[in-house]
Structures are given as C-alpha cells and as structure tokens.
Amino acid sequence: MTIFGYRVPMMASLLAWCLVWEIVGQLELSFLVPPLSHVVAAAFTLVQTGTWQAAALTTLNSFLIGMAFAIVVGVLLGVLMGRFPVADNLFGIWVNIFVSAPLSALVPVLMILFGMGETTVVVTVFLFAVWIIVLDTRAGIQAVPRSLEEMGRSYGAGGLRLYSKIILLAALPEILAGIRLGMVRGVKGVVIGQLLVSIIGYGELFELYSRNFDMENFWALTIILFAAAMGLSAIIENIEKRVEYYAGVR
C-alpha cells in the first residue's frame, strides 16, 4: 500500500495490529488480553528462566529429529515415486490420503505405541511433515525435463552422478518448497504432540499457564513460538529464492 506516495511495506500493518492489542490491553477489557508491553516484558523474563530453556530445548530437539527423518524419508520416497511408476502407484494413494488426513487423531495411538515421551512427539513431527515433502519432491522430479536428463546421459553421467548432479539439483526448487511447507506442518506437529502428551516441553508450559490464568506468560510463550515458526519459514523461503531463478529456465 502507498500513503502519500511512500510505499508502506505490507508487514508494517502488523505493527498497527500490535498497537491495537496494546490499547485493548490497557483498557483492561478482558483479563485474557494483557497489554502487549506486559507480554513482551514477560517474554524477556521468561526466556531467562530455566524452565523455559529446558522446555525450548526439548521442543527443539523433538522438532529437529522429527524433521531430519521427515526430510530424508520424504525426499527419498519422493524421488522413488517421481522416477518409478511402480513406487508411484504403490504409495501414491497413501501419501495423498495422509497429506490431508487429520493426523491429530493418530497421536493417541502413537502415545500407546511409543509411550508418553519425546519419541511420540518426534513421530508426530515426522508424520505431520513427511507427506508434503514427498508430494513436492515427486512433483519436482517429474518436472525435470527429459532433455536435461538426456544431456546428462549423453555427457556420460550415470547412476549416482546423474541423480546428485542433475536430477536432484534440477528439482531443488520444489524440494525446498516441500521442506518449507513440511517445517510449517512440523511446528504444528510438535505443538499438537506436546499438547496431547501434555507433560513435556512447550505443551507442559502451555497447560501450566493457561490453567493458572497466567495470561502474560501464556501470550509470551505464544508469541515466541509464532515468531520462531515465522523465522524458520522465512529462512527456508530465503534459500528458496536463491534457487528460484532456475525453475524458470529449466
């Protein structure tokens, strides 16, 4: 949007919304909405506490392990499905079902299979993130033009080199897009997993603060989490932009 000929960046409206939040908070309309300034202050104290740091570490740990598995398995399965029709036919239906199925219903099952601990959360992250990575990788592999592959073969690339130097690189824009979407889902997975298990990490803190009506800490926790999720997705988006240029000329 432009005001008086000066272009106001889009995300600037978030500042306006923050201001609204602060005003609503100051008016004390509801105990649920403390002023944003209090929340930010609470966030600064919160991050210095040992409980938060431990919770954040646990959460990050589950998230990273789950994502690592999801990326490895997702890309491998995606490449398989993109290259071999048999794999595509065999797995396609299940990937498509799980990519949009309410996987939160699976978490209770995971809880009895893997216990009320971190393993369950890791598996939840994996299950939330992996399917979209598979689908996007598959789409990327199938978008690799035949001529590019034939060029590779005609110049003597075969087997592993064909994959590492041509096919995977050519499909990189889609793979990265899949990983970014997978990350967004993974963050949701880690939160949902921890909320349902409810005795570890961030989930435990959320339970604790909301049960005690400690709204300042609750919102502080929330904005830290939201900021982390946005930051993560922005980083991947940044990497994506660097390879975007060749998606057009491929």
């Binding site: 949007m1 978030l14 649920l32 989490l225």
Partner: peptide
C-alpha cells in the same frame, strides 16, 4: 490486503493449536 493479509500469513504459519487450551478456559 495491507491491513489483513499479514495477519493471516502469520496465523497460517503459526501453530494455532497452542491457543486451544485458552479457548477452553474462556
């Protein structure tokens, strides 16, 4: 677009499930 889109962009990327305990208490 300027006013509303960023809010939804944040809400879509963020784990909204975290707010479910809150609405229960309200």
């Amino acid at each position: 677009e300027w006013l509303v889109a960023p809010v939804f962009i944040v809400l879509q990327a963020a784990p909204m499930a975290a707010l479910i305990p809150l609405i229960t208490f309200v």
